[in-house]
C-alpha cells in the first residue's frame, strides 16, 4: 500500500494549476483533500504521474452567501461547511448530509468540490447537488463552464470534467422558504458509505397539498437519480402516509441497484422504498404537515 512514483506539484495560483493540467492532460490529477485519491493511489487503483495540489491556492478557499446561492470554493472543507450556521439555515439538506460522510477527521480534510469531482455513486454530496439543482463552476486554460449537477455526474467515479479542467466552485441554491428537507441513509455503521440514501424536499401549496416534491436516491445506480416521475405525481397530491408509501414503492420499483457483500440488489431496492417513504414523511413534517 505504497504510492507509485509521482510528481507532486504545488501551484500557488489557479492559473499555474490550469497550466499544469493543460500541459499534462490525462497524466495529471487534481488533489484537494486527498481523502479519496490518496487511498486509491496507495492501493494503486489510481496512478497519476503528476499531482496538481490545489490546497495552496487562496482564491479557492472562500465560502460565501450570495443571496440566491451559497458558493463553496474548491478547497472548502466538508467540516467547515458542516459547522457553518449559514449552511445550516440556508442549505439545510447539505448540513444534514455532511455528518454522514466518514468521520470528523476525514471531513477536516475532505472538500465539497472533491466529493463532487470524485463522483462516488454512494457518496452523499452528489445527491445533495442533484436534489438542490446545484451547479459547479469548472475552469481550464480554454475558459470557464458552469455545469448543472444533472449534467455533471456521468457514472460511478465519472463526471463531465475534461482532463485539463479544474472544478473551482460549487453553487448550491439557497433553500425555498417553507420547504421541508430530509436527508436519510442506511449504512452498516455511522460514517460508512451508504447502502442507500435519499435526499428529499417537500414544499406545500395552498390548501395544504404538495406544491413541489423532490426525491434523489443514491447508492442505487451509477450516479444519483432524481425520480422525476414520482416527483411529478406528488405535485398537487395530499401529503398523506398513503401517498408517501405509494410514492416510495413507485420510486423503488424500477431501480437496479448493485449487489455486494453488504446486500443484494433486492435488499437495496427494498431499502430505497423504506428510505424514500421516511424521507418524504420527515420532509413533509418539516414543511408543516402535522404528524
Amino acid at each position: 500500500m505504497k504510492l507509485p512514483p509521482l510528481h507532486h506539484n504545488t501551484p500557488a495560483t489557479l492559473e499555474e494549476a490550469l497550466d499544469l493540467l493543460g500541459e499534462h492532460g490525462d497524466e495529471a490529477k487534481v488533489i484537494a483533500g486527498g481523502q479519496s485519491l490518496v487511498p486509491m493511489m496507495a492501493m494503486r487503483l489510481a496512478r497519476p504521474a503528476q499531482l496538481v495540489d490545489i490546497n495552496g491556492i487562496a482564491s479557492l478557499a472562500a465560502m460565501e452567501d450570495r443571496g440566491d446561492v451559497l458558493a463553496f470554493g474548491a478547497i472548502v472543507r466538508e467540516r467547515a461547511a458542516e459547522k457553518s450556521s449559514v449552511v445550516a439555515e440556508r442549505a439545510p439538506v447539505l448540513a444534514e448530509a455532511l455528518p454522514h460522510i466518514g468521520h470528523v477527521s476525514i471531513r477536516n480534510r475532505g472538500t465539497i468540490g472533491g466529493s463532487l469531482a470524485h463522483a462516488d455513486a454512494s457518496a452523499e454530496l452528489p445527491a445533495v447537488a442533484m436534489v438542490t439543482d446545484a451547479h459547479v463552476v469548472v475552469r481550464s486554460r480554454r475558459g470557464e463552464r458552469i455545469v448543472a449537477a444533472e449534467d455533471f455526474f456521468v457514472g460511478h467515479f465519472t463526471t463531465s470534467l475534461a482532463d485539463d479542467e479544474c472544478l473551482v466552485e460549487v453553487r448550491v441554491p439557497a433553500t425555498l422558504p417553507g420547504a421541508g428537507w430530509s436527508f436519510q441513509e442506511v449504512a452498516r455503521r455511522q460514517g460508512d458509505f451508504a447502502l442507500i440514501g435519499v435526499a428529499a424536499m417537500v414544499a406545500l401549496g395552498g390548501g395544504g397539498s404538495i406544491d413541489t416534491a423532490r426525491i434523489c436516491v443514491f447508492g442505487v445506480a451509477e450516479r444519483p437519480l432524481r425520480i422525476r416521475t414520482v416527483e411529478d405525481a406528488l405535485a398537487g397530491a395530499a401529503p398523506s402516509p398513503e401517498a408517501f408509501e405509494a410514492a416510495a414503492a413507485d420510486a423503488a420499483r424500477d431501480l437496479e441497484p448493485p449487489s455486494d457483500v453488504h446486500g443484494s440488489a433486492a435488499y437495496r431496492r427494498h431499502l430505497a422504498a423504506v428510505t424514500v417513504r421516511r424521507a418524504l414523511t420527515a420532509a413533509a413534517a418539516r414543511a408543516g404537515v402535522p404528524g
Partner: peptide, 16 residues
C-alpha cells in the same frame, strides 16, 4: 446476522 439477512429472515423484505 447482518441487516440484509435480518430482513430476509423476518420476511419483511418487500417484493418489487
Amino acid at each position: 446476522l447482518p441487516p440484509a439477512r435480518i430482513v430476509e429472515l423476518a420476511g419483511t423484505l418487500r417484493p418489487r
